[in-house]
Design a binder for these strands. Sequence first.
DNA 1: TCAACGCAAGTGTGATCACAAATCAAAGTC
DNA 2: GACTTTGATTTGTGATCACACTTGCGTTGA
Lengths: 245, 245
Amino acid sequence: MQKAAIERNNETIAAQLTPVGRETVQDRVYSELRRALIGGLFEPSQVLTIRGLADALVTSTMPVREALGRLITEKALEALPNRSVRVPPITLERIDDLLRARSLIEGEAIALAAARMNARQIATVEAMLGEWDEMRALKHKKDIDREATLNQSFHFEIYRCCGSAVLIPMIESLWLQSGPCIRVAIYAFSDAGEVDTAHYHRSIVAALARQDAQAAREALVADISRPFAFLRDKLQSASKEGLRA
Amino acid sequence: MQKAAIERNNETIAAQLTPVGRETVQDRVYSELRRALIGGLFEPSQVLTIRGLADALVTSTMPVREALGRLITEKALEALPNRSVRVPPITLERIDDLLRARSLIEGEAIALAAARMNARQIATVEAMLGEWDEMRALKHKKDIDREATLNQSFHFEIYRCCGSAVLIPMIESLWLQSGPCIRVAIYAFSDAGEVDTAHYHRSIVAALARQDAQAAREALVADISRPFAFLRDKLQSASKEGLRA
DNA sequence: TCAACGCAAGTGTGATCACAAATCAAAGTC
DNA sequence: GACTTTGATTTGTGATCACACTTGCGTTGA
């Protein structure tokens, strides 16, 4: 019975090797498109074609069309009656709609998380606060992409603690939908002068640290409302311009 | 310039014809699978294969695999590491999770709807109440499928009035996820004796009629909690049985 | 007797082709 | 000159094939 020995041997091998996984092309395409959408690499109303994306991603059309189908069901993309697909356009109603849904669901998620986070988990998000300051210190080079990524990690690190396998995918879907809008707002932000995202994040962490669910929810809503409110104003003045012209 | 005349002619023709649309096979497969899932035709933990479904639906594998992919991203189905796909199994945590999410989001939707519904819309859902009683009158033949369909129509008729294009797809996704669980509960219900769904629906309509958002929310939560609570008890006693054995 | 091996059927994934619909541009018509 | 028509190109959809992986069962070996 040297079975135990073989078992041990296999375990030591497993400990040395990093699992390569068996990610399909379709999965890679899907995450790549997700990343692009949340990061705002696509503009609202931009039309996407299967063959175009397949060329850009250097694959065949097959994985792309399945990934697009999945993104359409998540409302991250929009299927036009022409059967072509585009990034959903920004409208005032949609902005308010998205903000309300995000406040509701992400607010619930952080309230749940506030009651469940342990010291280690709080320390993790606190550390991300430091990372943010660090990045801000060398502000000569504004790296909007890096800021967006860090912001996303911060939020989802918290949401992951809410213990709900149902809410988190919904939040991801909401980020996917608001990604293109938000990015437009962020660009406008950095033109219009600095905003202290770090301040909002600090008050979120403070509320979490004292397990104050209500305060955490309010701080979070304040944080996510900012770009939406900014975008809303921008859109309203733009439409007034349009009316005048 | 007889363009206007042609236009008019086309319009009169269009008024007579019912649009056949240009629904793709993929769309039909997708809605069929949705219907089956919400209706609970698939059992939790049941494994589905692409070729099997393609045979059952009399199409090729192509539309089926895309539909399955979409359902997986909505968490209506689950992708196993083996790359096979199954209906998500029922667990206690999942039941609580789904109920919490549904209470939160559908509660918000009905609260919004309460403030927005006009007399005609309220009359519509009131009429559905009557339809329910009618069906119940000839209760000799319990048609669970018909009850489920009517229940779904009732709820979504209300939700559609909330004016949010973001919330409604999320609610659909939640129904898709809870469909298989609920159906198990409903079957157990009808064994365990009658429950007065109509009573809950009546109090929902009453609250909507007097635009009482809070009452509507509470009545709704009571309505959707019932099968979940029932299922929860059933599962708990079953697991106790399992432990004893 | 039982575990390990190996073969065969079944399954998901990706590529390619055929086809229909949409789009765009140039030529034609009033 | 404005509008329609026609033809070429582009695009999404569905079918089919090839390949890799998994699974199940029967055989082999100790």
